[in-house]
Write a protein that binds this DNA or RNA. Structure first.
Lengths: 243, 243
DNA sequence: CGGTGGATTGAGGTAGATCAACATGCGTGG
DNA sequence: CCACGCATGTTGATCTACCTCAATCCACCG
């Protein structure tokens, strides 16, 4: 089941994305770079294969690298001293990690699945940025959309009910997974209930109960514990509270 | 009382800040710009005086301007259809508004006090950025620190108790107000209880009760409703939960 | 000096947390 | 390929932190 689901997703082509820095020259960051600079950037990249639950970096560590996720899922989180954890977001193929300007990482980054990343030395990357300041404009756009995502997440955490949080989470994940046009197809949930809980600011029990209620209300269908099919799109959207 | 508090703060010199784009050439954004470009930027600026509760822009409106706050306090917020509001942050002199790259504003911006801003036409500002791409690097730094602030706020909203939220809020406001060295001096609270509630994800009643408890525990002193004096710094920090 | 909007305080209700038991499914080794 | 064992997920019962509703209180302003 899981295997065939994975196959399906891979076929669908949204479980992987070319690196937006070195591998996707026609897109995003590298747009309008001259070929010599593109080659220079390409030479800076190291491709890494990561396992499940691998830690890319932890909060406080020196930010020595910049990454672009090309395959798999990564969670960014921050924890309090007593262990309470808040997941800030789930990264999907194409997303950047560790872009923060500054000395140290501000959060933990951990893979949820096996994953592939394109890694760049910080110093070399900064040097490249200095030579190609127009690239900074594209990074600024990325930071800006991260900021917009964070704002939506703050609303979710501060003002939404449990049901609205779960509905918003599912819709956001679906939209970002690029499966919008495939309404009847299952959406993979690479994260555990505990991770959904830490993203939504709830407990695992509440996450489980809300998903159960959505299921018995015929809004979604649960396919095992790690995939969902959205049955009633409009209702899920109405339940998400997002105006 | 309020007047003398205001006088004190003004004397202290942190209720105003020169515009980081056009008025503070030695700092921040403009560092390393050549004089001709600096003059060009300066020419783009319009200074505005705003009243209390003035709306600078609303979510969804075309982002036609970029602003730098030089005096007063501004709140950024997003609201749900039914009126529930989440305040994303309080801006102090020196902070930027409306930097988001994209067509439309993603949140509402409203002054809490009388305020002064330096305003730039979006198109002209973008043109300036294109001519001075190194400035984008400085904007990237600002976006990055905004992102770090958002992450801390997500932890507050998702995982902290009411007391921890209020303690964190007070400490953050104090640190950003630049009054760290003035431990015994009152901290101005230009926002109402309702705005503190919408920032912390609580209700006004809970905000009031928590402040009352901090007061009777001799951790803070309330000076009217719009100023606090932190009496026991270490304890407040311990209560904030931020490791 | 009275009115008005914000703030405080109290009583009671509830969404979601906590605690606990049980189910399920997945990976491992036989 | 199946059986076992553990991690993950579900479900139920109860508890509680915070919300809601309601009644003052208070500070500021004309």
């Amino acid at each position: 089941m899981t295997a065939s689901l994975h196959d399906f997703c891979a076929r669908r082509g949204d479980l992987t994305a070319p690196c937006r820095l070195c591998g996707a020259r026609e897109f995003n960051i590298c747009q309008a770079l001259d070929p010599a600079q593109q080659d220079k950037l390409f030479a800076l990249a190291t491709r890494l294969q990561l396992g499940k639950r691998d830690r890319l970096f932890a909060a406080g560590e020196p930010a020595s690298h910049v990454y672009n996720l090309t395959e798999g899922t990564v969670a960014l989180s921050r924890s309090l001293a007593d262990g309470r954890r808040q997941i800030l977001g789930f990264l999907l193929p194409g997303d950047f990690l560790g872009l923060e300007v500054g000395e140290a990482h501000r959060c933990d980054a951990e893979t949820l699945t096996e994953a592939k990343v394109c890694r760049f030395e910080r110093a070399a990357f900064d040097g490249f940025l200095k030579d190609n300041p127009e690239v900074a404009l594209r990074l600024l756009k990325i930071a800006s959309s991260d900021l917009a995502q964070a704002a939506r997440h703050e609303v979710l955490l501060g003002r939404k009910t449990a049901t609205e949080r779960i509905a918003s989470f599912l819709l956001d994940l679906r939209d970002r997974s690029g499966a919008r046009h495939l309404r009847t197809q299952p959406l993979a949930l690479p994260m555990t209930r505990s991770e959904i809980a830490d993203y939504t600011g709830l407990t695992i029990e509440t996450v489980s109960r809300v998903l159960g209620r959505l299921k018995s209300g015929k809004v979604i269908e649960l396919i095992g514990a790690s995939a969902v099919r959205v049955l009633d799109d409009a209702r899920l959207e109405r339940m998400s509270g997002s105006s």
